[in-house]
Write a protein that binds this DNA or RNA. Structure first.
Length: 552
DNA sequence: GCCGTTTTCGGCCCGACTGTTTTCAGTCG
């Protein structure tokens, strides 16, 4: 059973309690829903934790739920859960995917509608379940900035911010939410009206005095919220979320005797800025990227929030593919080395690495591979680039963990990246062994896009992260945060684990075309969401210190 | 059922919208 399936099961148990007796089971409902959230956000598969006897590490899972999960992992089902969900057909849970349908409504539908009507509704809900793809961050950012330009141009807007997952820089974004402060009082309705006139609007979903929602091409929903200057900070904080951060923040406020909401603190305390709000609650300001209720409030109380990495801390890009043709196994870059170097200087880098894919394994003998690599070495070393260019290579990991490049070939390199581009479906143990074998080559320094996930397309591979982390720490190997918005790999949650353990990471754009060099900021977002400081990221080192790390 | 910077017992976030059991339950974020 996957974490998503377990989370769904726990939510169904909560809904069942709610359906049967909301008052009696009030706190079980809260507990099960919280447990479901925790499972969904867990960085480890629960099944793996259970294998290792570590279920109690998951927050919000206590002895009771743990014992039921134990039963599920052993026998595939839990007596207790079955008892709670008794009398509620599967169809009812499926129907809950429909908007505004909870279990009570779903059960009512099953009792009152005909079979034909039910079948139609089920089709509809299954469609929703299969369609919940979220937008990649850059796509959402582009749309948001166009809409924000429109708002700034034509209405009396004096302050404007994005909200929600967009502002927290999550890898994917659902709806785009925007907050504005009006220049004049009593102009709110005019702003929302102007907003709905945005030229690309396909449909106005809702339009009131303080809020409006429009639908843009590609099923993109944009919500606008207009607020008063006095309450701007509260609104910004509340709608930035995350939901879990807000819950934890309000619980913290409650301990201090305050009831916090998006309007401020009852009865009349209002906040113009987020800083005022956090400070009023005795907290240091918390960057939006950290607001996921993963310890940021406790750290804020203790004045121990990390000084997060910034884009200007990055001294070089450690994954760039040029068009120098070494008959690669995967896509060759399309931009010339000269173009890429020029752009690197514009970006203020001190060094970069050319990391073309290895010459194809099937097309060449190992000797031929070595020859091609020698040609590339000459080309990189004999040119005067005007900034340090490292001669590197992104090497496929064979199924057995060996590399398709001979030791002689590896000798031509300053250091190598390794990555998985085929055979994604090995067992966790086999995959872990495969990666550790490849990481053991002395020239190999960086494990690139370690989970091999592609957002909205492909789940990542299964790895025993504890072993990978341990190996990296002991052998000074680094994990890449691939900044390609389709990858963002390591994912933020694993970055957080790595940071906690002191494992070093690298940032690379995986550039195959010159404009991709500008994707570095998306990698920085991920690093920040994982609580990384510049000490955690190798390419924040000066050229001199970086050279020492790679023994040059 | 879970949890701890006032607690191992006694609490558990806050509010908006919708559509009508027209005073609030159900759902959502």
């Amino acid at each position: 059973m996957t974490n998503l399936q377990i989370a769904e099961l726990l939510r169904n148990v909560a809904s069942s309690y709610q359906y049967k007796n909301e008052q009696k089971y009030k706190f079980q409902i809260i507990a099960y829903n919280r447990a479901a959230d925790a499972v969904e956000h867990s960085t480890s598969e629960l099944k793996d934790l259970w294998d290792d006897g570590k279920l109690d590490q998951v927050p919000s899972i206590g002895p009771s739920i743990a014992s039921h999960l134990d039963e599920i992992f052993k026998n595939g089902k839990s007596k207790h859960f079955e008892e709670v969900m008794k009398g509620i057909p599967d169809e009812a849970f499926r129907l809950m995917a429909l908007p505004k349908v909870g279990l009570k409504t779903a059960m009512k539908m099953l009792q009152e509608l005909s079979k034909k009507e039910i079948d139609e509704k089920l089709k509809e809900s299954d469609k929703i379940i299969n369609k919940t793809k979220r937008h990649l961050l850059p796509y959402a950012e582009n749309i948001a900035s166009e809409v924000m330009e429109w708002l700034k141009e034509g209405s009396n807007v004096i302050k404007i911010d994005t909200l929600g997952s967009l502002r927290r820089k999550v890898a994917t974004v659902g709806d785009i939410d925007i907050l504005v402060k009006s220049k004049f009082k009593n102009q709110n309705a005019k702003i929302t009206e102007y907003f709905t006139k945005y030229p690309k609007t396909q449909k106005v979903i809702e339009q009131g005095e303080h809020t409006a929602s429009i639908l843009l091409p590609g099923d993109v929903q944009v919500d606008l919220l207009v607020t008063t200057p006095e309450q701007y900070g509260s609104a910004l904080q509340h709608f930035t979320g995350s939901k879990h951060h807000n819950i934890a923040l309000r619980e913290h406020a409650l301990k201090l005797g305050y009831s916090l909401s998006e309007y401020g603190i009852k009865p009349d305390k209002k906040f113009k800025t987020e800083e005022e709000l956090y400070n009023f609650l005795g907290l240091d300001y918390i960057e939006p990227e950290l607001r996921e209720d993963t310890g940021e409030i406790q750290a804020s109380i203790a004045n121990s929030l990390p000084l997060l990495i910034k884009q200007e801390d990055i001294k070089g890009d450690l994954q760039i593919h040029s068009d120098f043709d070494i008959e690669t196994s995967h896509d060759l870059g399309v931009s010339t080395a000269e173009e890429l170097v020029k752009r690197s200087k514009e970006l203020g880098y001190e060094y970069i690495a050319f990391t073309e894919h290895n010459p194809s394994k099937s097309g060449h003998s190992l000797e031929r591979v070595t020859d091609l690599l020698k040609q590339k070495e000459e080309y990189v070393r004999e040119n005067d680039w005007g900034l340090k260019v490292f001669n590197s290579l992104e090497i496929d990991i064979n199924k057995d963990g060996s590399l398709p490049v001979s030791l002689k070939g590896l000798e031509t390199l300053d250091f190598a990246l390794i990555s998985i581009h085929s055979v994604f479906d090995l067992s966790r143990d086999e995959m872990t062994k495969r990666v550790l074998t490849a990481l053991s080559y002395p020239k190999v320094k960086i494990f690139a896009h370690p989970t091999a996930r592609k957002i909205n397309e492909r789940e990542g591979i299964e790895l025993d992260w504890e072993k990978i982390f341990d190996f990296c720490l002991k052998n000074n190997k680094w994990l890449e945060i691939n900044a390609d918005p389709m990858r963002l790999d390591l994912p933020d949650t694993l970055v957080r684990d790595a940071v906690k353990l002191g494992i070093k990471m690298t940032l690379g754009t995986d550039t195959h075309e010159i404009t991709m060099m500008d994707n570095m900021k998306y990698g920085v977002n991920v690093a920040r969401r994982g609580w990384a400081t510049k000490k955690d990221v190798i390419n924040c080192l000066s050229l001199e210190d970086f050279k020492k790390e790679v023994n040059i």
